[in-house]
Amino acid sequence: MNAAVPLHISDLTVAYHRKPVLWDVNIALPEGKLVGLVGPNGSGKSTLLKSVLGLVPRSSGRILVYGKPATRNRALVGYVPQRETVDWDFPVSALDVVVMGLYREIGWCVPVRRRQKEKALAALETVGLAEYAHRQISQLSGGQQQRVFLARALVQDARLYLMDEPFAGVDAATEQAIIALLLELRAAGRTVLVVHHDIQTVPTYFDHVVLLNMRVVAQGPTEDVFTEENLRRTYGGKLTLLSDAAEALARRGAQRG
């Protein structure tokens, strides 16, 4: 496959408890773009990211990252999970969390060295949190926690970033900081796929949009794709027939991807 395509998903079907969440999804992302992944609640946005990372089993389909199966090209992928997925009472500092982005590079059983800490500190500096490096993570505000997660992905120096709702529940300052960061990443030629909730800001933030509701409703440059017509198709509720059919199939045990 084409090694220049950061993320190429073909015929991806993912089912939870045999009920499809994603159904025959086909996506190809252009390199060096900020891509918004937009769709209503339960449309499978987070599941899409997780299946790229191999966190959820997929019923069928192929996922290529720069031409190779995603699980073999993990080093090229940086991941920012949703903030609620972890216990923020955990006894680690912001710096510790950021260094986690380098664990793979450090390797099994080898302790973290000064060089990696400095790298992590630099990443914290980029997101404007250098002075909070040694704070325990529960003592950070929601926006700051989100930025720590961003720094952890940044320090990995990946080529493709997957971000799961980085704008959810953050203050205006953090939102601006994240946007500045995204622009910087784009300038450095990185590709960023962002799960996004706020339809209003999509045209200003993203160059490229994927509209998702179980299937890909539309994808392409924002100005072409982000139309009222497409949004109505994504959010309009007409697509409930899709999930009705999926459920009927699951009930019959006939879902074979």
Partner: peptide, 15 residues
């Protein structure tokens, strides 16, 4: 540490 703090991220990194 990574396993206990964020097992999903660990898996995403390939641990």
């Amino acid at each position: 540490t990574l396993l206990c703090f964020d097992s999903d991220y660990a898996a995403a990194q390939g641990w």
